[in-house]
Design a protein around this nucleic acid. Structure first.
Length: 535
DNA sequence: TCCCCTCACACTTTTGAAGTGT
DNA sequence: AACACTTCAAAAGTGTGAGGGG
């Protein structure tokens, strides 16, 4: 599990702390929350964020309040608080491109492998969106949240609850590498999140998504209107989940059916198919021959290999892409209806069974993009880099910010759960100023990562934080670090996944490796302490 | 003893640099 | 010289199964 000591390289105030008492707002049996005292003492700063919630419901309590879990409104148990950004218009829809494949897996009980180095998801998350403004720019985010507070075990050929879940890990958010792109671009192609990797390595520095093994999770997709990834202005956001994409994390497959389905549908596992060279039968006979005569084995292998290649092994990539499935693995599935189904209340946690067979097959828009909101407010926290207090170094004092932006939030929250089909509020024109900029909301911790313009970063010697209201003005120095590599004055860029995903896409002058080196050789505090003249 | 995790392995696909042709 | 296409080696993505730790 986490220990503050092992995260020291993230800086002194990076706080993964020992779990404290459970938030009283959570129902009994819910997860044990991490507490972030830095945030707990924020007091009324957060009040305006959730005007329609009573204090005890907010999960963002004052000093005497219940424990705050961070991410504060992840997942299960209670409705997450309303996102401060407006929702995207109601006609924004998302469909899962390979939903049939997901359904096949879900019918059995999807398992996803976790490895230390990170393992890709299969099936992959491929979505399509519609209803976006073709000219506006959007970012696509994905995060993975625990579905319930239960740890599972594989027993008697089924998943059974085996106790309470491990404390939640800091939620990492994957930003699609093509973000931001115009609505037109997003809508004309399948959006694939295939590069996401899952790990059980709590010390992971590669930016992979950290999950616990033997737990149940679900991916969430977020569409955020933003002109660029560093923009200070964020427009509306909408979030979506697909019930079929729920999975249990494992370090080795438990369910033989899942293994076989993965082998038959994942091109990389082709070698383990009946006709594959890595099939058990092949391997066994190879081992026997090898034991007899190593040299002849090699020759025989080569000839076999040629034959297989010439005869053309079965290509299940085609199966997947053409919608053709191995007959023996097709399960009885609920009728596909992937139409958009906005605004569903969060499901009541039901630890068992982990995979209800007849789930609705609609995407569910999370009217409230729970952790996405928290992410946008405290991205670095989600990346395991710093506490909100730390990220608050560049935040404007709450008192400096007008309060009127919260008008209408109460209605928005109610609508999010009561389910009107109409958009919460009219969307601003893409070319117009995005008025609902929750980064300028009171009580918001401004992101140090995305909160300056790329132009200022590249062309003008670095951002002017003071003019942005993010903190002390950096008088000197563009990007060059004295005696070290250049990098933008944003400690959040230490999030390597972001760096890797963003550098090429945004043509940052700092390759991921360079940034990695820069950050790995400097304690986080060095980047945060302006006295040390890093910038 | 059991459960879960890690690692090395053999196989496959993907990626990108180098070479070749137009 | 520039571009498009092909080739090929390296890198990366798979499940397996032995072995180890708690």
């Amino acid at each position: 599990m986490y220990h503050p000591d092992v995260f020291s390289h993230y800086g002194p105030s990076y706080g993964i702390r020992t779990p404290h008492t459970m938030a009283s707002a959570y129902a009994p049996g819910h997860h044990e929350a991490f507490r972030y005292p830095d945030l707990e003492h924020t007091g009324p700063r957060f009040d305006s964020l959730f005007p329609s919630l009573d204090h005890h419901q907010r999960g963002l309590p004052g000093p005497q309040g219940p424990a705050l879990s961070l991410p504060p409104h992840l997942g299960y148990g209670q409705p997450p608080p309303q996102c401060q950004a407006s929702r995207l218009p109601g006609n924004v829809k998302m469909t899962m491109e390979n939903i049939e494949l997901w359904k096949q897996f879900n019918a059995i009980g999807t398992e996803m492998i976790l490895t230390k180095a990170g393992r890709r998801m299969f099936p992959q998350c491929k979505v399509r969106v519609s209803g976006l403004d073709p000219h506006a720019r959007y970012m696509m985010l994905l995060d993975i949240v625990a579905v319930d507070n239960t740890r599972y075990k594989w027993q008697e050929k089924r998943w059974e609850a085996s106790g309470k879940a491990e404390p939640q890990l800091p939620n990492r958010v994957y930003i699609h590498p093509e973000s931001p792109a115009s609505g037109e671009q997003w809508m004309k192609q399948t959006i694939s999140f295939h590069k996401i990797k899952l790990t059980n390595n709590t010390l992971d520095q590669m930016g992979h998504i950290i999950l616990h093994s033997m737990h149940k999770y679900q991916p969430r997709f977020h569409i955020v209107q933003a002109n660029d990834v560093f923009s200070r202005r964020w427009g509306g956001c909408s979030s979506f989940t697909f019930p079929e994409t729920t999975f249990v994390t494992v370090t080795a497959y438990q369910n033989e059916e899942i293994t076989q389905l993965k082998i038959s549908t994942n091109p990389f596992a082709k070698g383990f198919r009946e006709d594959g060279m890595n099939h058990k039968r092949e391997r066994d006979s190879r081992m026997k021959r090898k034991a007899k005569s190593p040299r002849r084995e090699t020759e025989s292998l080569q000839s076999e290999y040629k034959q297989v290649r010439l005869s053309g092994p079965c290509d299940s990539t085609l199966d997947e892409e053409m919608g053709v499935r191995p007959l023996d693995l097709v399960m009885q599935l609920p009728s596909p209806d992937c139409s958009f189904h906005p605004i569903s209340p969060p499901a009541t946690p039901s630890p068992n069974p982990p995979f209800p067979r007849a789930q609705e097959s609609q995407s569910q828009e999370i009217g409230v993009p729970a952790s996405a909101e928290a992410y946008l407010q405290h991205p670095a926290v989600f990346h395991g880099m710093q506490t909100a207090k730390e990220s608050n170094m560049f935040s404007r004092p709450a008192s400096d910010v007008p309060q009127e932006n919260n008008i209408g939030k109460s209605e928005a929250l109610n609508m999010a759960y009561l389910g009107p089909e109409e958009p919460v509020e009219p969307e601003t024109s893409p070319s117009a100023e995005i008025s609902n900029d929750f980064r300028t909301q009171p009580s918001t911790n401004y992101s140090t990562c995305y909160s300056f313009d790329l132009n200022s970063l590249v062309g003008h010697g670095g951002p002017d934080f003071s003019s942005m209201g993010y903190g002390p003005r950096m008088e000197e120095g563009p990007l060059a670090v004295r005696g070290g590599p250049a990098f933008p004055p944003s400690n959040d860029l230490r999030f390597q996944a972001f760096m890797q995903n963003s550098c090429s896409a945004y043509a940052l002058p700092f390759p991921g490796a360079q940034l990695s080196r820069a950050y790995s050789t400097q304690p986080a505090s060095a980047y945060l302490d302006t006295d040390k003249s890093i910038f």
